[in-house]
Design a protein around this nucleic acid. Structure first.
Lengths: 222, 222
DNA sequence: GCAAAAGTGTTGCCGATACACCCATGG
DNA sequence: CCATGGGTGTATCGGCAACACTTTTGC
């Protein structure tokens, strides 16, 4: 038994995980099985354990445990610690946002798969706790990071067509972009290179495929 | 005595408080009176208490208690929670940065004033914990926020000359700016208005004074 | 041959930069 | 009258937005 000089609190991480399915930005939600907010939709997340070496590790663990997802990009967003944001006791929540390529999602591999689902980011249900606020902040951050970093690549597999990348920008920003200007912009950054492969099979001209020069590391430009 | 389902942790806030003194960006440091890192310089900060309604309130309280400062702008920066960042026990630290006008600093009003001191932001001593990392992050954030927000006003009193504002930009970014272009930039934003007053008394032409149109609320442009 | 998506250049405009001199005051 | 900082305009350049047609494939 320990005696502490200062009060201690529960720490949690909550993660807003986005992906692109078709032309639409999607967000992963979990249906809560316990109180409080039992039956409500909420962000995946959970309490920090002593064997989580870092907060990020905690967030990643919850994402794979609760949602059966892996291979995501993860970045800290903001920390919420107001009194009363959790009705049980004071919980300090470190919010993250995460991105996965739309391809190869392993949601179905989970035992209780129906408890997790992708929602259109523009049509979310009522959410538990202050999760609506977290999501709003995550979307803002995401949209502004498109303008000065390579976050967009995190939505795509290693090989992608420029039109795939454009679909990411359009879905996240919620506006149409001019194809020629977009290509000039991306190629002008000098951060992608052709792989030499093409994507065939569609009823149209094959698309040249590219990869991020830096692998999938986040780069800042501007 | 309570039994918790999950482990609980100490939460702290640490604050990087900047001001402009003369032409130089300064950072406030506190000399630690207790273990660990006794005698080292550190950021002002301390543990979250149950009567702090918000994390921000905790940060503000510590700033006024430890440093005797008030009237600052305060914004959350990042949360550090790795194992081992505090040798005593695991401490989750929510880092903030804060800005005060160089005028009217009340540091001297403190009882143990010699325990707190302003250091040139470019010449800091060895620091306790991971505080050097926090400060580096704060400076980056600050410098980039100059480009798309009105944070700079937070370094200035209500009335200021355009050259004061320019000194802020130069100190934070660490580079000289062209006076004419700078004024065009600021006036072009349309976020300041002349107060009608002048600052006389120097051995030079009096400077017209301005105020932020929005009061001291943070605005985003671009 | 037709539907569907890929690919490709030029022009105009606006915002950012570079640059040097006169002005008003206090001492 | 001199030292100090305040105040002002123009020309150039480069990046960004607007804009439409041809190409390659699968069926």
């Amino acid at each position: 038994m320990y005696q502490y000089e200062y009060p201690h609190f529960a720490i949690a991480t909550d993660v807003a995980l986005f992906t692109l399915l078709g032309d639409e930005l999607k967000l992963l939600l979990i249906r809560r099985r316990g109180a409080p907010f039992k039956g409500s939709w909420a962000l995946p997340g959970g309490f920090l354990r002593t064997d989580d070496a870092t907060l990020e590790e905690c967030a990643a663990r919850e994402l794979s445990e609760e949602a059966g997802v892996s291979g995501f990009f993860l970045e800290q967003l903001y920390t919420f610690g107001d009194q009363g944001r959790d009705p049980r006791e004071r919980v300090i929540s470190v919010a993250y946002y995460a991105l996965v390529p739309g391809e190869g999602l392993t949601l179905t591999a989970r035992t209780d798969a129906d408890a997790a689902a992708w929602f259109p980011a523009d049509a979310l249900p009522e959410l538990a706790f202050d999760h609506a606020q977290i999501i709003q902040l995550a979307r803002q951050r995401l949209a502004s990071k498109l303008d000065y970093s390579t976050v967009a690549f995190q939505f795509l597999p290693d090989e992608f067509a420029l039109s795939d990348l454009q679909r990411v920008y359009e879905a996240v920003k919620g506006e149409q972009l001019d194809k020629r200007n977009f290509r000039k912009f991306i190629l002008g950054l000098g951060l992608v290179e052709p792989t030499g492969n093409e994507r065939r099979g569609g009823p149209s001209r094959p698309a040249k495929l590219y990869r991020a020069k830096t692998g999938h590391r986040l780069e800042y430009f501007r």
